[in-house]
Amino acid sequence: MTLGVVLAGGQARRMGGGDKCLLQLGGQPILTRVLERLSGQVGDIVINANGDPARFADFGYDVVSDSLEDYPGPLAGVLAGMDAAASRGAHDIVTVAADTPFFPHDLVAVLRKARGTLPVALAATPDPERGVNRHPTFGLWSVDLRDELRDALGEGLRRVVAWTDRYGAATAMFPAADGNDPFFNINTPEDLAEAEARLQASAR
């Protein structure tokens, strides 16, 4: 089984604090849209978030918090997901960001194909300047790495790609969807307005 892990641990400073994923997009919480996209691609889902888990009770999934203090970033959420997966007998996790409502419906399949026998694959999109733009919160991870990740975090490592590059992480390329970035994420009120416009355009 592959466990889906929704990374919702960010502090949303540019949105005035709180949980970005609970903001409304097209009459639904952003998180609802993320969960709907992910649910058909994995065996089960957990939400990685810190603080009172009761605020996610209506979504029907278990909430797992970081085992490290001081919000050390998405790698701590990956570790929390790996620990949850290990307790359920899952061998892999797929991580997605809770503020990215348009990620591909075939995310897991493409990540799995790209990963092959490697322990990690990260999503990416073409970039006209850099060639490749990796999206490190969207990845397929072997649970076998959890003890090594725990050690790396204990040593102070925080950047996702600094850790995944140790393992020669595979890159799973995703084209633009109708000219739009499939990994567009909502960081500001302007981004939320853009997401609303994109949602309305797709419904026409």
Rank of each mutant, 00 (worst) to 15 (best):
R146P: 01
K113I: 12
A152H: 05
A123N: 06
D178A: 15
P182W: 03
A176W: 11
V120G: 08
N185P: 02
A121V: 06
H105F: 04
G156A: 04
H135K: 15
G131S: 11
L149V: 00
A172V: 15
N180G: 00
F102G: 03
V132K: 03
Y167G: 02
P104N: 15
T125M: 02
L157K: 13
G168I: 07
M173V: 14
W141E: 07
A121H: 03
A109P: 00
L145N: 05
G139D: 11
N133P: 00
G156Q: 08
F138Y: 08
D151R: 14
F183K: 02
G116M: 08
P104Y: 13
F138R: 06
L149Y: 01
T137A: 14
R150V: 00
Y167Q: 04
T171L: 13
T125Y: 00
G154Y: 00
F103C: 10
A170C: 09
F184G: 08
A176N: 01
T164L: 11
D144Y: 03
V160W: 04
G168W: 03
E155V: 03
H105A: 15
A176M: 12
L140F: 13
N185D: 08
W163Y: 15
F102R: 07
M173C: 08
A170P: 05
T117S: 15
R134Y: 07
G156Y: 09
P136I: 12
D165P: 03
V108R: 09
F184E: 02
A176P: 00
G179W: 02
V161D: 14
L145I: 07
T137R: 14
D144F: 05
R158N: 11
V110A: 13
G154T: 07
V120N: 11
D178V: 09
P104K: 15
H135Q: 15
T137E: 11
N185R: 10
G116F: 09
S142P: 11
D165L: 06
E148T: 04
T188Y: 14
L111F: 09
I186E: 10
N180R: 13
L145W: 06
N133A: 12
A121Q: 04
V110S: 11
R112N: 11
D144S: 13
R146F: 01
P104C: 13
F103P: 12
D151P: 00
V108F: 02
